[in-house]
């Protein structure tokens, strides 16, 4: 059993929790993920690690309450226990040797973009951060990003806070103005990662995306998380979760993530479709 030692609502739909998991806290690195299971009947749900405290032995997760299990997790409180918490799984974000990077976060994806941005910074890189949200009410982690980023650009879809528009806009402007990066890392909804990859491709800037396919065990056993990258089948849980965004078959990933759609909240799908349309309009 794993104790919830801190809970904080970041906005109406997004919750932060620190979970007591000393073995994982000792080993976790940016870019890796955990799998939780609430109780004996629960499903195994992967979440990318949002932070860790090696001394306190805690691991931070930030999640959007969209499905059955994340809503149930959000209903638990400090002092409660969850049945299972396993990790760190997957490969860490490769930060070594990168001098100038741009980390792009979208919505709740910002939660996992933050530790990667921090890891790049700690490895000595100049870090630009672009984060995007639907509107002012759901902005999260602004102060944390400001502390890590050499340059922080905050976007909202409706212009209610920061700059008006999608994350791809400032990225495109920078690249068009001759700026370049050793690495662009995009973490967020699939359409956003796809359009970030499409934005950087003409400029030949290496772009990584952190994928979140359907997963059961997270150790390479089920193959449910297989994604096609550069024509090859990869397992996100052991080969990823980060892959070359210019090689990922996003359409396939999008389709496969809908395998159990009837059980998923419609809200995510609706938002994803809207972003797809907006992204398309922008790329034209």
């Amino acid at each position: 059993m794993y104790k919830i030692v801190r809970k904080k609502e970041l906005n109406s739909a997004v919750t932060l929790m620190d979970i007591e998991a000393p073995f994982i806290a000792k080993k976790a690195q940016a870019g890796q993920f955990i799998i939780f299971r609430i109780d004996d009947k629960g499903e195994r749900v992967p979440l990318t690690i949002a932070g860790y405290d090696r001394e306190k032995g805690t691991v931070t997760i930030i999640f959007q309450k969209v499905g059955f299990s994340t809503i149930a997790l959000g209903n638990l409180n400090e002092g409660d226990y969850i049945q299972d918490f396993v990790g760190p799984l997957g490969k860490p974000t490769p930060v070594a040797g990168k001098k100038k990077v741009c980390v792009v976060g979208g919505g709740v994806g910002c939660a996992i973009a933050l530790p990667s941005a921090r890891a790049f910074k700690e490895a000595g890189a100049d870090v630009t951060v672009i984060v995007g949200f639907r509107n002012k009410d759901i902005v999260i982690l602004e102060e944390e990003f400001a502390a890590v980023a050499d340059r922080l650009i905050l976007m909202t879809d409706d212009g209610s806070y920061g700059q008006h528009g999608l994350v791809t806009q400032p990225l495109k402007e920078m690249l068009e103005n001759g700026e370049t990066f050793d690495e662009v890392l995009a973490i967020g909804p699939i359409p956003m990662m796809k359009f970030v990859s499409l934005t950087t491709k003409p400029f030949g800037v290496h772009t990584s995306v952190s994928l979140n396919p359907i997963m059961v065990d997270g150790t390479g056993m089920c193959g449910g998380c297989r994604v096609t990258v550069g024509g090859e089948v990869k397992f996100a849980c052991v080969d990823g979760p980060e892959f070359d965004g210019h090689q990922v078959d996003f359409a396939e990933l999008m389709s496969r993530n809908g395998s159990y759609r009837d059980r998923e909240a419609e809200v995510t799908e609706t938002h994803a479709c809207r972003m797809e349309a907006m992204g398309k309009a922008l790329i034209k």
Partner: peptide, 16 residues
């Protein structure tokens, strides 16, 4: 067609 929804490994089917 192996990436279609409804194709899975026996491991996944049995584990579920």
């Amino acid at each position: 067609g192996e990436a279609l929804k409804g194709v899975m490994s026996a491991n996944e089917y049995l584990t579920r």
